[in-house]
Amino acid sequence: MEAENKNLDQFTKDVIQEAGLTTPSVDFLANVMAEVSKEKVPVKVYKPLINKVGWLLIGSLFLVFTFVLTRFSLGFSILGDWDLSTLFVQKYDIKFTIPATYAYSSFFLLIFVIIQVTMISKRFSRSLES
């Protein structure tokens, strides 16, 4: 068995010596880099959840509703007698009042912004997973 292994070792040494070492061509690195640069990597294009036209529409609707609610009040409130101006500290005799319409519109805007942020964060995390 050892004789066969010695013969096999000698045979492989002879084959390797006959083949010799080959060196790459002079421009081997340039050729490899050219082939690598040919490969196209798919680029993800950022597409916002709400585009510019949508934001302009939302902003203009917000301004129109604010204007209509402040100019054409019907004398009743959806939220009843809940007054947001009582949330301010009146310890220092500061006479600062916020119209109820602005307070309600700011409150609902805050709710919509929170919803938007959660939707964007979910979409962003899904895009990172794929």
Rank of each mutant, 00 (worst) to 15 (best):
E2N: 10
G59N: 04
S106Q: 14
V68Q: 08
K95F: 13
K91F: 09
I58Y: 10
T101P: 00
A19Y: 12
T22R: 06
S37G: 01
L21I: 09
N5W: 15
D81W: 05
Y102T: 11
S130R: 10
T22H: 08
E2I: 11
L29G: 06
Y46T: 06
K122N: 05
A19R: 15
I98F: 07
D9V: 01
L56H: 10
T23L: 02
G20E: 05
V45G: 01
K91Q: 01
V36I: 06
D93F: 05
G75M: 06
L110I: 03
V32L: 11
N7T: 06
E2L: 07
S106G: 15
F112S: 07
V64Q: 07
K13L: 09
D9K: 09
F108H: 00
W55Y: 01
S25D: 08
G59H: 04
N31S: 13
V89C: 06
K47P: 09
T66D: 04
W82P: 07
S105M: 12
I50G: 04
G75I: 05
E4W: 13
F67H: 08
K47Q: 00
Q17Y: 05
V53R: 13
F88W: 00
V15W: 12
V32R: 04
M119G: 07
Y104T: 03
S105W: 11
F67S: 07
V32F: 00
G20S: 01
D9E: 00
F67G: 06
L109W: 08
L56T: 05
Q10K: 13
V113N: 03
L128H: 02
K52R: 15
V36D: 09
I78G: 01
R71P: 00
M1A: 13
I16N: 15
K91G: 10
F67V: 06
M1G: 11
I16D: 14
F107N: 03
I120G: 13
V43M: 13
L79K: 04
K95P: 11
Y92A: 06
F107A: 09
L79T: 08
M1Y: 10
D14K: 14
D27Q: 15
G20Y: 07
R126W: 02
A19Q: 12
V53S: 10
R126I: 00
K52A: 15
S105L: 15
V41I: 11
S60P: 01
F72Q: 04
K40A: 11
E18L: 06
P42M: 02
T66N: 04
P24T: 15
G80M: 08
S106T: 13
A103E: 00
P48V: 04
L128K: 04
M33F: 12
I98N: 09
I50H: 02
N5K: 15
P48K: 01
K122L: 01
D9F: 03
V15G: 09
K44D: 13
S127A: 12
N7G: 15
L74N: 03
Y46F: 12
D93I: 02
K38C: 14
S125W: 10
L110S: 06
R71G: 00
E2S: 05
E129D: 12
P48C: 02
F11E: 10
P24M: 14
N7V: 05
T70W: 07
A34T: 01
S77R: 09
D9I: 05
S60N: 00
N5P: 08
I16M: 14
F11S: 05
E129I: 00
I111K: 08
F124H: 12
D81F: 03
